[in-house]
């Protein structure tokens, strides 16, 4: 499709303004001198200072980071295994149930997932804390990882694996030397997705945790319920900055890779 019109320009401008203006306002007012978040009283970075001196927030950030690293790594291993089983294993006993359990958590309301896990943890007498949040996050994010990885597995040429097996690889070697390098980008984006889902989650973590562990979203939520605060603005700005840098770097890297591949193809075609 071509023929970009003024109508397209206007709708894009309005759409992106709607998406970005709230975040821009939030960022600007994290540098506000005043405690009142809606009245500008001069530039200051004091809220960042207060934030970094706030032990409770730092503790929560540390808990959140640990949970996210552990749960996304576990989820990536389990999710990749699940994707491999779904795409490559053909028929096995209980396959329908298995694929149902992979897709159901994606559409399950968070309140239900959280409630059911809490009832399980209480039922088996597991003390709630970092461990139970990791278990809960792994469970729902492995399903996202498996969807991402299986879409890559479904499009890749199976004969490559078969060739490796014919040439004397064991199936483990074939997976490590052929399959894994090919699906690696999907595995990495699955891990990133699981990581951000874990960083972001409020509802499931609130159900899964006990008094011993508080994550950053839980902390933010309880602070925000009392109203807008400049400290939260500062915290949000830091989080937005990290994500923005990460996403832009990732897209620049993949773009550069694409350009290089095109150049290589071009050179190969010429020689």
């Amino acid at each position: 499709m071509s023929r970009f019109s003024w109508f397209n320009a206007v709708s894009l401008t309005i759409g992106f303004a709607f998406l970005y203006i709230p975040m821009i306002i939030l960022i600007i007012f994290s540098f506000n001198e005043s405690k009142l978040v809606t009245v500008w009283a001069g530039f200051s970075t004091k809220w960042y200072g207060e934030l970094l001196a706030n032990e409770a927030f730092l503790d929560a950030a540390w808990v959140t980071l640990r949970v996210a690293v552990f749960s996304s790594t576990l989820a990536t291993i389990l999710g990749t295994a699940a994707a491999y089983v779904l795409i490559r294993s053909g028929r096995f006993f209980g396959r329908t149930l298995f694929s149902g359990m992979i897709y159901a958590p994606l559409v399950m309301p968070e309140v239900i997932t959280g409630l059911s896990l809490l009832l399980l943890f209480i039922g088996i007498g597991l003390e709630r804390g970092v461990l139970t949040i990791v278990l809960a996050h792994t469970t729902f994010s492995m399903c996202y990882v498996s969807v991402v990885v299986s879409s890559r597995l479904a499009t890749f040429d199976k004969s490559l694996e078969e060739a490796a097996l014919d040439l004397g690889c064991s199936s483990a070697q074939a997976f490590r030397l052929v399959t894994l390098p090919i699906i690696a980008p999907a595995v990495i984006s699955g891990w990133l997705l699981a990581f951000t889902l874990s960083l972001d989650d409020l509802v499931i973590a609130s159900f899964a945790t006990g008094p011993s562990a508080t994550t950053l979203p839980i902390k933010i939520f309880s602070a925000v319920r009392l109203g807008v605060s400049p400290e939260i603005n500062a915290l949000s700005t830091i989080m937005i900055a990290i994500v923005t840098v990460g996403v832009i770097t990732a897209s620049l890297l993949s773009k550069r890779k694409l350009v290089r591949e095109r150049e290589e193809e071009f050179m190969a075609a010429r020689s």
Partner: peptide, 9 residues
Amino acid sequence: TSFLIRVYA
């Protein structure tokens, strides 16, 4: 970006 932060904004 965090869902919670976008709602908070």
